[in-house]
């Protein structure tokens, strides 16, 4: 499923136009990104929690050639699915 399908589904379920649905969805995504960027945590009930965490500098290996790398500290987006979503997706059957 991609974004345009999401927009279609939203428009169908809510009765808005697709353009309006897309605007509203984009506004949401933009707001989530903004809150994450300023260090907040965003809870979408039923979907999950978006958060960011500091990943400290560490050493790793480049998978291709096994070289040691000094990986600098960075900020990473994390997502933890809501319980309802976690349960619901167990119905997925791979390969279908």
């Amino acid at each position: 499923m991609n974004k345009s399908e999401i927009v279609d589904a939203l428009a169908r379920r809510l009765g808005y136009s697709k353009a309006e649905s897309k605007r509203l969805l984009d506004a949401h995504l933009d707001a989530i990104a903004h809150e994450l960027a300023i260090g907040n945590r965003v809870v979408i009930r039923g979907l999950g929690t978006f958060d960011s965490r500091e990943v400290p500098a560490h050493r790793g290996r480049r998978p291709g050639d096994g070289r040691m790398l000094e990986v600098p500290a960075r900020r990473q987006v994390t997502f933890r699915a809501a319980e309802g979503l976690r349960d619901a997706v167990q119905a997925w059957e791979p390969g279908t």
Partner: peptide, 13 residues
Amino acid sequence: VARMLVGVVRDGL
């Protein structure tokens, strides 16, 4: 939209 999005993403998954 936020409410519906949950169901849409779930169904998509």
